[in-house]
Nucleic acid binder design. Structure first.
Lengths: 225, 225
DNA sequence: CACACTTTGTGCGTCGGTTCACAAAGGGAT
DNA sequence: ATCCCTTTGTGAACCGACGCACAAAGTGTG
């Protein structure tokens, strides 16, 4: 029932999208090392996945490999970059310049891909006006103006939990539809808005769960010593 | 291989484990607000999930609800905490005290659950000896000694990418089996070791992908109508 | 040109997770 | 005690993702 004729189907599985950055990173490393061509097997190892999965993932973007040879590193980097939208440059605003916001502002990993930190915004008058990573911290009152003036399309929320929803509502109101949320709250947004959350304490709790099982699970019933 | 007889089956689905911290956070908020009892519907909304999913998740830990009434908040907090292993206290070491490591050391969210930052470790002599968040930064040479002396069981890697694998190997060698990795590399570890990774730039790339589709998709696509 | 070898792209069985929908179970009122 | 209302716990259908295994497609050699 679907249009099977389309060679480059836009319906890329979410799981695949989440892995493309991984492949991209591995490919960049190979390109730097001068590798011209790579097999799915080698790339899969470098990215830490199964080679069949990798081939299936890449097949979603098109037929960019050569049977008997492998993938052209340079070309694949370009194709994945294009698919992820990294050929354009994305203006990112970081709201909340506490410890985490500061760290993010200085984080090189953002810039290295197509991302540019275009604004730092905070509510604390103590911080507003400071220079961090070569950027002037602006006041939260200017939020809407700054976002529009700088063409910000992705907002990183690094505010305290209590402020996150309010800031979120405001950035959504000015038309931002992509948010990376570090605040430990469930944001409520219209369906058209994408929110990804990173919660450091959740990651630790998941580790703790498995660690506990390893320690007490297999044969040791009770650790009541 | 399975033990189907156990009433409290330890085989909790991974997806469920990942959501338990979410429920726990919501429940803590409710407990603070004095709510004694909560329905799956209300809790689901607070945690941002579907209520059927929530009930199924909770059913994996046992039958802790009362039909017609809901769940006792206090009791559920205890049960989930116990299941996640948060009733004990976990000593965490942060290796790599750059911008990110510093932010993590100061992050309140760790301590608020059962986690305690027990050590900060870095290789840079410029940083070693500094006091950060009330902790003395120790030299990487002391890595093994510190981990064992402080009973560290979870290590957070916030080193540069180039150093991550080497540090990882060393902490695994001293018996650490839970690692939270912020370095943008694929760590190779024995199967018995749990690694969770947080990659900020990957999150942004996923957002960019969807943002690009939103921008270019609906309007630019060939549409007959 | 034919044959051997390599590696991609994918059909298909399988599995884990999500959601629906409902029977079972409890509370409260009369 | 009986009836009605609420809410849990779960059977079962559905859906997406994973990975095996192989045909298809390319390279290279004699």
């Amino acid at each position: 029932m679907k249009s099977p004729s389309h060679p480059r189907d836009r319906g890329i599985p979410e799981a695949t999208v989440a892995r493309l950055p991984l492949y991209l990173r591995a490919l960049h490393g190979m390109a730097e090392r001068g590798t011209a061509t790579v097999s799915s097997e080698d790339l899969a190892v470098a990215a830490g996945v199964n080679s069949a999965k990798l081939r299936k993932d890449l097949s979603h973007l098109g037929s960019y490999g050569t049977r008997g040879v492998g993938y052209d590193v340079e070309y694949l980097v370009y194709q994945i970059s294009r698919e992820l939208g990294l050929t354009q440059d994305w203006a990112v605003a970081i709201v909340g310049v506490g410890n985490l916001g500061r760290a993010l502002a200085n984080y090189g990993g953002f810039v290295s891909r197509g991302f540019r930190v275009a604004a730092l915004i905070d509510a604390d008058p103590e911080v507003v006006g400071d220079d961090i990573a070569g950027l002037n911290v602006e006041h939260i009152d200017e939020l809407e103006a700054v976002i529009q003036r700088r063409g910000v399309s992705i907002v990183v929320l690094a505010t305290p939990a209590a402020a996150a929803q309010k800031v979120c509502d405001r950035v959504v109101a000015v038309g931002v539809t992509s948010i990376l949320n570090f605040a430990p709250v469930v944001l409520s947004v219209p369906e058209s808005v994408d929110v990804r959350k990173v919660d450091l304490s959740i990651e630790l709790q998941i580790l703790a769960f498995h660690e506990q099982r390893k320690a007490g699970g297999p044969l040791m019933a009770v650790d009541s010593q």
